[in-house]
Amino acid sequence: MQMQLQKVFERPRTLRPVATHYCPGCGHGIVARLIAEVIDEFGIREKTVGVAPVGCSVLLYNYLDIDMYEAAHGRAPAVATGCKRVHPDLVVFTYQGDGDFASIGTAEAVHAAARGERITTIFINNAIYGMTGGQMAPTTLIGQKTTTSPYGRTAEQAGFPIRMAELLATLDGASFIARVSVHSPKNIIQAKGAIKKAFSVQMNQQGYSMVEVLSQCPTDWRMSPAEAVKWVEEKMIPYYPLKTLKAP
């Protein structure tokens, strides 16, 4: 009798067979894979366009086999808007870090959401500027040490970290807003569910959708990957609670 081997795990078609530039233990690569899986499961690879702006996000086009823009720092929601308004039939998403989405690009983020733009944002919040080498981000926690808050961030000096999901959930145009994390297998499964939901909200013409993904950055946090995972659980999640803030 011939043994039938059933394939239970394979690389998504949308994910290119290449090594990523991400550091060991980084969450970016996991999220790139989840996006690729979601695109494949919806069968929309040929009508999906991504926008990746400046930061660790920028090289996403090396990993996803779809049409993509590289955008200026913070401007991805505006670029995605321009694309989507010309081609309402396309599925358009942005892939942005915290410096991009919560600092330099807040105007574009807030107004794309307020307009109910039929786009999806995958927002990677790792509480630090990764690519530039670990400077303070708008989402850096109070007390967190970075290369530009070497004594730990203080509210007196640098103000408070921004909760983008809560902020955007107040806008009528925002239809689906969720915060997830990728620090454990269970959370990764939940993260995929949220990303899938966000894409479906867009495809159903229900408005703007955004998934904030808490992601570990061992290199710039100066931690081992195991410590970084623990730090997400113990430090980040209490300040950035995991939940669906808004759904249609």
Binding site: A78, G82, R85, H87, V110, H111
Partner: peptide, 26 residues
């Protein structure tokens, strides 16, 4: 066609970038 009032000139030119990237006359 599409007329869209952007939130700023910064956003307007990036919307143009996005729209021009699809090959449309913008």
């Amino acid at each position: 066609g599409v007329y869209l009032q952007a939130e700023s000139e910064v956003a307007a030119i990036n919307m143009l970038f996005g729209a021009a990237g699809t090959g449309a006359r913008v």
